[in-house]
Computed example of a mutant assay.
Amino acid sequence: VWVIAEGARARVPFGGFPWGKIAFGQADGVFLPLAAVGGTPLLGFAVALCGFGLYETYRRVRVRRATRAVPRAPLAVAALSVLVPVGGALAALPLVDDTAEDGTATVAAVQGNVPRLGLDFNSQRRAVLDNHVARTRELAADVKAGRVPRPDFVLWPENSSDIDPYANADAADVIDGAVRAIGVPTVIGAVVAPETGKLRNTLIEWDPERGPVATYDKRHVQPFGEYIPMRSLVRVFNSDVDRVSRDFGAGTKVGVFDLAGTKVGLATCYEAAFDWAVRDTVTEGAQLISVPSNNATFGRTEMTYQQLAMSRVRAVEHSRSVVVPVTSGVSAVILPDGEIVAETRMFTPDVLVEKVPLRSSLTPATRMGTLPEALLVALGAAGLGWSVVRTVRARRTRAE
């Protein structure tokens, strides 16, 4: 029943809001390996089952002490509801693997920082862009001096250029100069503003010789953040909706860039919370996952660390290294076993350069997709049905 509720909340309304899934609290938990077996639904099921099982075991033991008579079968079932998920997690440990099946890649994640915290960060859009350009040029200088290894590619965060480089030649020039300086493919997070229609939250693959060569438009844009549903109605309750003066539109294509021979799957910020948005990139061939994000709007809240925990769970779920470049922190590099090998401090300009394993094998969770969730939903529905039938029969018996 817990899985049914989380599944519904992850889909409706407005495309759902799975941010608070119980599975995302297990980045350091004993049940984490289950993510590779059945994804976040199975991981959440194990946590809920164990929690209720611990309570029921305690309740049964307490009743037994008071009455010295308790049915053994219910107590055994309660105990098993704790032991089975723990045993399943231990059995799943071999699926947590950070072997470099396809060699390694050296990746750089740039955190340029922002002029100020909160929702007004983008009022200094050029300053944000210049920060990321400056950090990339510093990286190029460090590589030339031999202080850091040369990356195979560079990842900038979401909104690192809120100035449309297709429409603004000056922005394109400074981006191009930074990419030429480092000399490797670089992914730029930009807001693209066509003359007509909706805005696009776009990731651009920028080649040092050819300029922009590929794009990925964020497929799940955030309601009440990137677009305002039912704007006229919502305005009655809060005039701040008009701060989103032009809605963003959603892309339709799965984002996988070929960066210097490495296939990198792209899930932009909010998309990391959605099972399908990350899985699609892996089934399309991604050997590594990138979650470029703009956490400046989160301020110094725990939401930044919540999102980082999601990326750690995704790493184990799909057995992929995950790189999280963020405008203001916390940027991080995560191995396929969920371990963070490098991270930045919040609201501090920085660059992470790390060698990570590349993998192409698929975990059971990746292969099965929504099947584990569907089976758990069916099990929950059957349990509810059985409970209703049993209750109705008991009432009829008492009435007779």
Score class of each variant (00 low, 15 high):
Ala127Ile: 14
Gly118Asn: 06
Gly112Asn: 06
Gly103Arg: 04
Arg135Gln: 08
Arg125Met: 06
Leu75Phe: 12
Gln111Ala: 05
Ser81Tyr: 12
Glu101Met: 01
Tyr58Asn: 04
Ala134Phe: 07
Arg126Ala: 11
Val70Gln: 09
Ala100Trp: 01
Ala134Ile: 06
Val96Pro: 11
Ala105Cys: 04
Ala100Pro: 05
Ala105Phe: 03
Gln111Leu: 01
Ala109Met: 15
Val96Asn: 00
Leu83Gln: 08
Leu129Tyr: 05
Asn131Thr: 06
Arg72Phe: 11
Ala73Glu: 02
Arg59Thr: 11
Arg72Val: 14
Ala73Trp: 02
Thr106Asp: 00
Val77Met: 05
Val96Tyr: 01
Gln111Gly: 03
Leu95Trp: 09
Asn122Ala: 15
Pro74Asp: 07
Arg68Lys: 05
Leu119Ile: 15
Val61Trp: 10
Thr57His: 12
Arg59Tyr: 06
Val63Asp: 12
Arg68Leu: 10
Val70Ala: 15
Thr106Leu: 06
Ala105Arg: 02
Glu101Thr: 10
Asp97Ser: 12
Gly112Ala: 04
Pro115Ile: 00
Asp98Ile: 12
Leu129Glu: 13
His132Arg: 09
Val84Pro: 07
Val114His: 03
Gly103Val: 03
Ala89Cys: 04
Pro85Leu: 12
Ala69Asp: 14
Gly88Phe: 05
Val86Ser: 10
Asn122Cys: 10
Glu56Asn: 09
Arg64Cys: 08
Leu75Ile: 05
Ala66His: 11
Thr106Asn: 11
Ala66Val: 14
Ala66Trp: 11
Pro115Ser: 07
Ser123Asp: 15
Val114Asp: 13
Leu83His: 05
Thr99Val: 04
Asp97Ala: 09
Phe121Pro: 12
Ser123Gly: 12
Asp102Asn: 01
Gly87Leu: 08
Gln124Glu: 15
Thr57Gln: 13
Arg68His: 11
Arg116Phe: 05
Ala92Asp: 08
Leu75Ala: 13
Val107Ala: 07
Glu56Lys: 12
Asp97Thr: 04
Thr67Glu: 12
Asp130His: 00
Pro94Trp: 00
Asp98Cys: 13
Ala76Trp: 14
Ala92Arg: 02
Val70Asp: 13
Val77Asn: 03
Ala66Glu: 15
Glu56Thr: 03
Ala100His: 00
Thr104Asn: 14
Val82Phe: 03
Pro71Thr: 03
Val86Phe: 13
Gln111Thr: 11
Gly103His: 07
Thr106Trp: 08
Thr99Cys: 06
Val84Arg: 03
Val77Ile: 15
Pro85Asp: 12
Arg62Gln: 10
Pro85Tyr: 09
Val128Glu: 13
Leu129Asp: 13
Arg125Glu: 14
Pro71Met: 01
